[in-house]
Every structure is written in C-alpha cells, then in structure tokens.
C-alpha cells in the first residue's frame, strides 16, 4: 500500500535522523579518519546536507502544526474572554447579595423605629 504524504515525510525524517546519528558515530568517524582527504571532505559535505535537510523537514513539520494552531487562535482567545466575563458575573452575584443584606439592614432599622 502506498504511503500517505505525511507518512512519507515522517519516514524520510526518521531515516535522515538515523543516517545523521550513524555518520556521527565513533565507528563511522574513526574509520573515516583513515581515509583520504577527498573522501573525508565528501562525507563531511554529505553530513552537512543531511543536517540541513533534517532542519528543513522539521521546520515544515512544525510549521504545518503551527498553522493549524494559529487557525484556532481567535477561538481560543474568545474562550478566555468569555471565561473572564463569567468570572465578572460571578462577582456580580456577590454584589447582589451584599446589596440585599444592606437593604435588609435598612429595613431592620425602620422596623426597630416602628416597634
């Protein structure tokens, strides 16, 4: 079965990361030290290309997620705003109870005067 584009990207990234780790291993590098300068140079340039490709693929992978997140950013901000508004409503409930208590205090004074 053919791989989906994202699966192919994922596989490519995994393979390149494994290649980088292998090319940086002591086994590979110590063997390379015994090779002619031209061969060492070719390997170094290849390793640098591998690294640049990894960085590009990582940037693409994270940017795709970032774009999806940014698409929802307004909703997230609206949600936070709504929550704050609800907190204010809750504080208003407290104010209503305080006002009622004050009102009752006035009523009690009138009642005392009327007794």
């Amino acid at each position: 079965m053919a791989l989906a584009p994202y699966e192919l990207e994922d596989l490519t990234l995994k393979t390149l990361r494994a290649t980088r780790a292998g090319m940086l291993s002591e086994e590979f590098q110590l063997t390379l030290l015994l090779k002619p300068a031209a061969e060492r140079k070719a390997a170094a340039l290849l390793l640098s290309d591998v690294q640049v490709t990894i960085l590009k693929l990582e940037a693409l992978e994270l940017a795709a997620i970032r774009d999806d997140l940014v698409a929802n950013a307004d909703e997230l901000e609206a949600g936070a705003k709504d929550l704050k508004a609800k907190l204010e409503n809750l504080e208003q409930v407290q104010e209503v109870v305080a006002a009622t208590a004050q009102f009752l205090a006035i009523v009690a004074r009138i009642a005392a005067l009327a007794a």
Binding site: E58, A59, R66
Partner: peptide, 25 residues
C-alpha cells in the same frame, strides 16, 4: 536551517502562551 526551525518553535511557544491564558481564566 536552524534559524527557520527556531522561528517556528518561537511561534509554537507564543501559541502555548495563549493556551495558558485560557487555562488561567
């Protein structure tokens, strides 16, 4: 290449701050 990845990571961090703002509320 490194700067490109770090820039996207910075964007992700900024978005995570938004999420934190929601959970703080």
């Amino acid at each position: 290449g490194l700067k490109d990845v770090l820039a996207v990571m910075g964007d992700l961090r900024a978005h995570t701050q938004l999420l934190r703002k929601y959970f703080s509320a």
